[in-house]
Computed example of a mutant assay.
Amino acid sequence: KKKKAPAGVVKEPKTAAVLLTVVPDSGITQAEVLRQATGLLTEVPGLSTIRLKRAQSGGTLLQFPGGEGHRTADEVSSAMRRVLGDTPGVRVGRSMKRVELRIRGLDDSVTKEEIVGAVAEMVGCGAEDLAVGEITRLPGRLGSVWLRCPVAVSNKILEEGMPRIGLVRTAAAPLPVRRMRCYRWLEVGHGVANCKGVDRIGRCHRCGDRSHYMKAC
């Protein structure tokens, strides 16, 4: 009988992707950037199949299917950064499906850097693929922290358990998927690039007040 997967384990994407974003009013158009990108793609060895898709953020997703998709996406991303990295208003990055976890059981000696190092060593990923929030320490409880990571990293953590960090072995639990939020209008369902609502930049993302930010709300 097939063993049931732990809660929170999700199916990994079949394609790897590179996200190409052009900031509005930056003096360069999406068409100009794509023309430069087309010239770069012809220089990547072994590139045969590529799919284009419009991202929710307004950028362009270059998707590479197949077993060599991740290797190809890494090469394309590196080549684009070399040529377009210094262009004002143009952003190039590897687009990976990410999930969020809550790590619990942290003793008072543990730091954010130790958490990133332990997870990266366990799963064999780069520290740049991980995002860690501030450690929360409440009276009478061990610390906990928010972690965002690629699906492959999250699945391995949930299947094999967290490594020992500090004095004890920590625990991880999946967090609910959050809908995309526009940080211009503070509404969900779309990104800043597609926003036609009221400009609320500089306000608390929780209550909309300008006197403080969400962390202090």
Rank of each mutant, 00 (worst) to 15 (best):
R71Q: 12
Q63I: 01
G8V: 05
T49F: 07
V10L: 04
T42G: 10
A73K: 05
M80R: 00
K4V: 12
R51N: 14
A7H: 02
V83L: 06
H70L: 14
Q36H: 09
P65C: 05
T60Y: 02
A73L: 08
S57Q: 08
R82I: 08
T15Q: 10
Q30K: 15
Q63M: 15
T60M: 13
I28D: 07
V33N: 03
E32S: 15
E43Y: 01
A79Q: 05
T15F: 08
G27P: 04
T38P: 03
P13M: 01
V76W: 02
A17M: 13
S48G: 07
D74R: 06
A73T: 11
G66I: 02
I28T: 15
A17G: 09
V83M: 04
L20D: 06
D74E: 12
K11S: 14
A37N: 05
G39T: 06
V76N: 04
A37S: 10
L19M: 14
G27D: 05
V18A: 08
Q56R: 08
A79N: 04
Q36A: 08
L47D: 00
K3I: 14
P13C: 01
V76D: 03
A73G: 12
T42W: 06
A5K: 10
G69S: 05
T49A: 12
E43M: 09
S57V: 13
L62T: 06
G69Y: 04
M80K: 02
Q36W: 06
K11Q: 11
P13K: 02
P24D: 10
V18M: 05
K14C: 05
L84Y: 00
E32L: 12
E75T: 12
K4G: 07
L20H: 05
